[in-house]
Nucleic acid binder design. Structure first.
Lengths: 283, 283
DNA sequence: CCCGGTTACGCTTGTCGTAAAGATT
DNA sequence: AATCTTTACGACAAGCGTAACCGGG
């Protein structure tokens, strides 16, 4: 269960080829073959079928563990190295699309910050492994509850914003005239599932799958009637087309949180302070 | 960042001694010294002070990562091995003290089950690393919200019970006659902090620290006026002494959840079914 | 036969233990 | 002086690459 072996294993599984994995990792085919053999010998189970190369059930199970494991390992290394490293000159901020709000816009102009837009699910990893100095994530949660984030590393989590939710409807939709909606009212509706932007409401059915982090395109699709989208009211109102109807009688709110690694110094620490200053939302 | 090196590092840090760690791990002092040197060389930072042996700041940081990391590694190995292993003859169920409720008592008699009482924080690890076949954890959460559990491994989590909360007061307490209480009413009160049994209410101050999983002793202390305790109403009512007053106007409930590893077979699967059958509480 | 994974084998490197040296109280 | 960590060194094993081998399209 050497991490090197796990890394080779995940690479082989991802590329479905020993030789391609060898090229990517800078090994020879032979070494890759030996790595897999070592893992399989250690666990006394086949992990991959050859020809075609695909994970066995045991291999699939191991794959579920290997990703988070290697991530945590990178995070640990990055975190310790960060202690000794000089504070970054230019701060890189990982943001999920909907986490960009007034608070960030107000805090930004002060210094040279590079933004990096990532799906919410990837922001914690980006901060933990040192790719970015700070992160802003958003998601749906019960009011004043912190978001559920994958714990890749011990990160400092601070709430920075909470917004009520709204549904973005096409102009002609039967509910478009109403002052507010409940999720029950839309029980039969189809939603656009855009996992890189917003989690869909629990238990909803999917009309269309939308990949990528482009919010504008998503709103356009919703306005054109291809499916409903749940957005922070603040964002839904600014959509060029479509009608934003506030969501009532729900415990859910849209929440944004700042993620900071254990060590935050220099310009990154200053930005973190501006982002959280006077925030009414706790850890 | 070889796991072996991390393991000796954590052992040395825990025992504050190279030689003691060597004895525990079955190495020579020399090997331990080389392990630490290898880690320090790899990260280009001192991790431990010698004489006395104690973690440096960087070392302390690494320690925070090392524990969860090694746990996940064990969990991965155990999970894959469990796929091939024969279903256990006797099921071992890890339970946190307050997770033992009517549902478990009803499901138990059917077969030979061994119970293992652990602090709630250790139950997920016990299930993930294969020490136990199933786990029951409890904790405080917003109504119908799942508990926040450390994700040591991808476990199947199923809610099995929710209970209203109560405060256990000594007989003469000013609030003891009231029909119900709010947490605000007790803002100045001191609580017994028993981390292995119940999380204290958020923001409370501690009168006494109580270690161990013995519920009876905790109730006795509370009844004797050494501090308040927050318990599921069901449990508080059965306390031999003391007065149980229901907690009102809170989002918090006491919740129990069943943890199952990815692979659950035989008698363990049957028990899991009985425990969750007809449960109104979701994932 | 060609492509791709496996096996054999030699070389290099790494890891451990023994033992001597060094440091700290 | 005693205790505990570090360093030196030799033995052994592990890991990688080269190259030969094999099995399926």
């Amino acid at each position: 269960m050497d991490p090197h072996l796990l890394r080779t294993f995940t690479t082989v599984a991802r590329l479905a080829s020993f030789s391609a994995a060898a090229r990517e990792l800078g090994y020879t085919q032979s070494a890759v073959s030996q790595h897999i053999a070592a893992l399989e010998g250690d666990l006394r189970t086949d992990l991959l079928t050859r020809r075609p190369v695909a994970p066995t059930p045991a291999g699939a199970r191991l794959l579920e563990h290997a990703g988070p494991l290697l991530l945590r390992l990178d995070a640990a290394r990055a975190d310790v190295l960060r202690l000794a490293a000089a504070p970054p000159g230019r701060v890189t901020l990982a943001v999920s699309p909907l986490s960009v709000g007034p608070r960030l816009l107000a805090a930004l102009p002060a210094s040279g910050v590079a933004l990096r837009v990532l799906p919410a699910a990837e922001v914690p990893a980006a901060v933990a492994t040192g790719g970015c100095d700070l992160g802003l994530v958003d998601g749906l949660a019960a009011a004043s509850d912190p978001l559920r984030l994958p714990d890749v590393a011990p990160l400092t989590v601070t709430g920075v914003a909470e917004d009520p939710l709204a549904v973005l409807l096409p102009a002609g939709h039967p509910c478009a005239e109403r002052a507010e909606l409940r999720l029950d009212d839309l029980a039969d509706a189809r939603w656009i599932h855009a996992p890189d932007i917003v989690a869909p409401p629990p238990g909803s059915r999917t009309a269309l799958r939308y990949r990528g982090t482009d919010l504008h395109g998503l709103c356009a699709l919703a306005a054109a009637g291809h499916g409903l989208v749940l957005l922070p009211l603040r964002v839904a109102r600014t959509a060029a087309a479509g009608v934003a109807v506030p969501l009532a009688a729900t415990r859910l709110v849209h929440r944004s949180e700042l993620l900071a690694p254990g060590t935050t110094t220099g310009a990154a620490a200053a930005l973190a302070l501006r982002l959280t200053a006077g925030s009414p939302y706790g850890t």
